[in-house]
Amino acid sequence: MNPKITYLLTTLMLLVGCDAHTPASLSFNDVRNELKANNRVLDGHTKTDDIITLPFSEAYLARRHHLYGSVAVDVLTQAQQQELEFLQIQERYPERFLPWPVQVNMLENLGTNNEKLAAWSHLVQTRLQKAIDSKIYLSRYERDRLLQYITTTTPQVGSIVSLETYLDTYKPRTALGLYQLPNGKEWYQSKLNYYYGLTKAPSKTLNAIQQALASQGKKSSIDIDDSNGRHFTLHYLQAHCELINGLNWIDSYINLPETARHCAFSIKPDTKHLILALMEIDLGIHYQGWSHKQASVTLQARIKLVDEQTAALIESVLLYPGSVFSLANIAGFNSL
């Protein structure tokens, strides 16, 4: 059967299934489990013969939206309500036009099933082309990372060769941060509001951070993990705090701000310095339009790091915008 027809039929079955079997009101844990099921391709939890929902397909988006609206809000804690509201706000922004989350090697997760690969290739190309009509583009970093996935992990079937050709000729946006996307500054502000818990103007926060860094004098030396793509905030909280469950796929279903608020771990001064420096480059990249080089120079002026460590930390800022601000509370910077 034609992969496009198969994909459309699968989408229809999934949408019908959503309405037929999902209760009108679900508990937090029920919704968390259902979101995990919807995200199982992103999480790499599929089998070869599974009928799957492709991430950011119409079926995926409809199911996710339905689940967000099915939570029994009256039994949620305040932190759970805040996270749910944040996730609902995220639906307004350009994410849906960028179907391949750069944090994930989707081709590895899909395996060698040519039909699934063909459906995925078609979805990515179609969505990215529609995004261009709305002036939404991948960054050069995102485009190059997707091409790296293709060249290192995928059998060269026709649909993937077509996707590689498309990305080879794709013209990305010039800057790295969210600010260059339509409504990008508002999108970034919504992330700061959630992770930081404050609604101050980013420019004022950046100024306060830079004053705090200047008052601390010489740059610190710190031993950090330089693993590629490391979610710095999540990794830190996993290592030192009791994790609190959340709904957000990008944060591995952990509520980062609430985990940090209840964490009793005492942060060392050098680590506090690093967190401040990461908050600075997060704002610099996503709100002020800093280049990778500008972020690298600034970070290395604050912290004694080798190039590989610097690149890994900047990658975390690129992949998980605003999340480092969850550590502001535990580090005592929540009043900046």
Rank of each mutant, 00 (worst) to 15 (best):
Y93V: 07
R173W: 00
S134F: 15
Q189M: 09
L163H: 10
V161S: 08
P182G: 02
L128P: 11
P94W: 02
N193L: 07
Y93Q: 03
T152I: 08
T112F: 00
A119M: 03
V161E: 04
A212P: 00
N207F: 01
V124C: 05
I132N: 09
A208G: 04
P182E: 01
L117I: 03
E142W: 11
Y196C: 02
Q103N: 08
S215L: 09
P101A: 06
Y170C: 09
Y179V: 07
Y141C: 03
L178I: 05
L178D: 11
R127I: 00
S220K: 12
E186H: 09
A175H: 07
N105Y: 05
V104L: 05
S203R: 10
T174W: 05
S121M: 03
W120D: 02
R96A: 15
I160Y: 02
T199P: 00
A208W: 05
W187M: 09
N113Q: 10
K116Q: 05
K200L: 14
L213D: 00
Q125Y: 00
P94V: 04
N109T: 06
K200M: 13
A131D: 12
K130Y: 04
Y194I: 00
P155Q: 09
T151C: 05
Q129S: 15
N114P: 12
S162R: 15
K171C: 08
Y149C: 03
Y194W: 14
V124M: 04
K135A: 11
V124L: 03
P155R: 06
Y141Q: 10
Q125G: 10
N193Y: 13
T153M: 03
K218L: 04
I209Y: 14
P155G: 04
L146G: 09
L147M: 15
L107R: 12
G197T: 05
R145M: 12
T151R: 15
E142G: 06
K219E: 11
L178S: 09
Y166N: 08
N183G: 01
L117G: 02
R143C: 11
L98S: 02
D133V: 13
E142N: 10
R173K: 14
Q210Y: 03
Y137M: 06
T112M: 03
T126G: 06
Y93I: 09
E164G: 11
W100S: 07
E186S: 13
Q211H: 07
S190T: 09
T151V: 14
V104R: 13
